[in-house]
Design a protein around this nucleic acid. Sequence first.
DNA 1: ATCCCGAGGG
DNA 2: CCCTCTGGAT
Length: 220
Amino acid sequence: MTTKSLPSSDYRKRLREIAKTLQHTMPSPKMELDHRSPWELLVATILSAQCTDQRVNQVTPSLFQHYRRPAELAAAHLPELEQRIRSTGFFKNKAKHLVACAKAVTEHFSEQVPHTMEELISLPGVGRKTANVILGTAFSQPSIVVDTHVKRVAKRLGLTRSDNPDLVEQDLQQLLPKSQWTAVSQRLLLHGRYVCLARKPQCATCSVYRHCPWKEKGLQ
DNA sequence: ATCCCGAGGG
DNA sequence: CCCTCTGGAT
């Protein structure tokens, strides 16, 4: 199988055109997880694994009212917490992670959400994807979030060939100046959520159709 | 590689 | 029924 690749400058140019088009489609992409602080965003993001933002937003208001600070969540009664977040799926894992994470934030970081990648992924239940959400949205640091949507869109647009999220992140990092990381990855995400759907991509209304080598044909 | 797990769409 | 939804830990 030959893997003849274009010079990366060509990929850069293509991604730049895609980014410009998406900028018109989505002038100001917004984070769709409701939150009022870095801590609330962290909790919401942990809950969002394999679950829609809409469902998370349905659960978090009463959750944040009941557990107001990291120290309160750290002391939560596990079965009760499980019931409060049940509808987000994976609730036993998520409840365990949330309590452990709240303990770590309380004990090691004085109830303040840390703002480096290394510290963030040291927290239970926090991987690279979650950490990048926090860095980009709560702390305005350049970050590329590679979730299921970004991975799918990047592959279909021919911006990466990898299935490994970390490698997809690296590929996109190399194709973009840091100043554009956060906004572009957020637009790719929303494009995946609303247009480039997993099962039924809306190619007829897709604004970057002309840049897409995949169109509706290919395999992933 | 496998497990966790509910809800909604097709 | 099957697939998908902002993954992470073992």
